[in-house]
Structures are given as structure tokens and as C-alpha cells.
Simulated scan of single mutants.
Amino acid sequence: MSQDLYRDITDFAHGTPGWVRLLAEVWTEAGLLLFGVLFLIGWWQRRGADSTMVAVAVLAPLGTAFGYVVSELLKSVITEERPCRAVAGAAPSLVACPPYGDWSFPSNHSAIAGAAAAALVLVWRTIVWLTVPMALLMAFSRVFVGVHYPHDVAAGLVLGALMAVLFVRLLTGPTRALADSMRGSGSALANWLAGPGPAVPEPPVRRRRRQAMHRRG
């Protein structure tokens, strides 16, 4: 089933215009860089939020890395051969087939994409409309260029997302405590990294006193 779908997708890929094939080849790597940029933006935006959100923003890229590590460990256990070598009669892959020993299941690119998409939603919920399509396109592109089976990328997406969410949820508490400590440390670097936190409302008595002094002045 997966081999037949792989043949259908790679045959379709060879029938697309050259610019589509080039875009797919570029996207398999460029998408990872875009996710990195989104992590930085999410962290910067959450610096003014409470320490819980700062902790989630810091843990999001680490959770993505954790998803990749778990995927890589599974690869070394399952040792599935790449379809660009194993599927008879399939169209040639659009990119070089990875060397023997760089196994196929699950797809590391898809695991990273799924992890990044899920982790970013924890940081920045309204970005789901961008991160999920990005992850799906990245996973599809790995089959499109001929280096993964469809089941490789499906498993990678799910595995990465689950591992990232689990990682962030388990470590949010300790990381929140660390962010609180950094904010109260008095260190300029620590305060910059952890952010200033939400603005504290001025007490009513102090505000009235300041307003009265301003009127007298």
C-alpha cells in the first residue's frame, strides 16, 4: 500500500514543472529554518508575559530537538531501507538518495516539523494556521522528492508532535521557577533573557498621591 502510494507520488513529482520540483527540494530544508525564526519570534513576544509562558517559549525548541532525538533512536532500531533504493520500478528520487545506514522510518524531517508545529502552538496559539500547513507540506515534500515512504512521514509527524508536547508539559514547572529566579536576580543578562514580565499595576493610593503632587507642581 505505502509502496504503491510512493510510486504514485514520485511519478506525479516527475510530471510537475521544474519550478515545482525545485521548490519542493528547497522547502524540505528551508522549512526548518523558518520554524527556527518562528521560535525566536515567539520567545521575544512572550518575554513580557508571565513566567509560565516564558518557560513554554524557551522549552518549545528544546522539545523539538527532543522529538528529533527520539526519531533518530527509532531509526537505528527499525532500520528500514530508503524507498529510493528499495522500491522496484519507482521513478528516480529528485534529490540524492541518502547513503546506506541513514534509515527511512520514521522521517526525521517530519518529526522535527511535527514537533515544531505542536510546540509553537503551545507558545503562540493563533499561529496554528501557519505551522500545521508548514509541517504537512514539509512531510509531503519528503515523499515528493523520493526519499521517504508515506508511512515514514506520517509517523514522524505524530511522533514529533507527541514528544514535543510531552517534553514541554513535563518541564514547564521547573523552567518557570528558573525564569522567576532570573527575573529577580538583578543580572541584566538574566533579565533580558527571561524578559521583564507583565507590567505591575500601580497601587491606587500611590497613583492618587502622584497625581496630587503633579497638580500641586
Rank of each mutant, 00 (worst) to 15 (best):
L162Q: 06
F144M: 06
G160E: 02
L162P: 05
D152V: 08
T175D: 09
V147R: 01
G160Q: 10
H151Y: 15
A177I: 02
R169K: 10
L178E: 00
L162K: 05
A177D: 06
T172G: 04
F167H: 01
L171A: 01
V168Y: 02
D152T: 12
L159N: 06
P174Y: 00
G146W: 03
V145K: 09
H148A: 14
V168P: 08
R176W: 02
R169T: 06
Y149Q: 13
H151S: 13
M163Y: 08
L157C: 10
A161F: 03
V168G: 03
L178W: 09
A155I: 06
V158M: 11
A161R: 00
R169S: 07
T175F: 13
M163D: 11
A154C: 07
G173I: 03
P150N: 13
L170C: 14
Y149C: 11
L171V: 01
A164Q: 01
F144K: 00
G156I: 00
P174H: 01
V168R: 01
L157Y: 01
T175M: 15
A154Q: 12
A155Y: 04
M163G: 08
M163S: 13
F144C: 06
V153W: 04
G160M: 05
L170V: 15
L170N: 12
P174A: 04
A179H: 02
M163I: 15
V158H: 00
G156A: 08
L162H: 00
A154L: 15
H151F: 15
M163P: 08
A179N: 07
L157V: 09
F144G: 03
A177N: 06
T175W: 09
T175Y: 02
L166T: 09
P150W: 07
D152M: 09
A161G: 12
V147W: 07
V145A: 02
M163E: 13
P150E: 12
V158T: 13
V145P: 09
V168Q: 00
V153Y: 10
H148Y: 13
F144I: 09
A177C: 03
G156Y: 01
T175H: 07
V165N: 00
A154P: 00
G146F: 08
V147G: 07
A155Q: 12
H148V: 15
F167M: 08
L157S: 09
T172A: 07
L157A: 09
M163C: 15
V153T: 12
G146I: 11
L159Q: 10
A164T: 00
A177M: 02
R169D: 03
Y149I: 11
L178F: 14
H151T: 12
P174G: 03
V145L: 07
P174E: 03
R176Y: 08
L170F: 14
L166R: 15
G173K: 10
V168M: 03
L166C: 11
V147Y: 05
T172I: 04
G173A: 14
D152C: 10
P174V: 11
F167G: 01
V165G: 05
L178H: 01
G173H: 04
L159V: 02
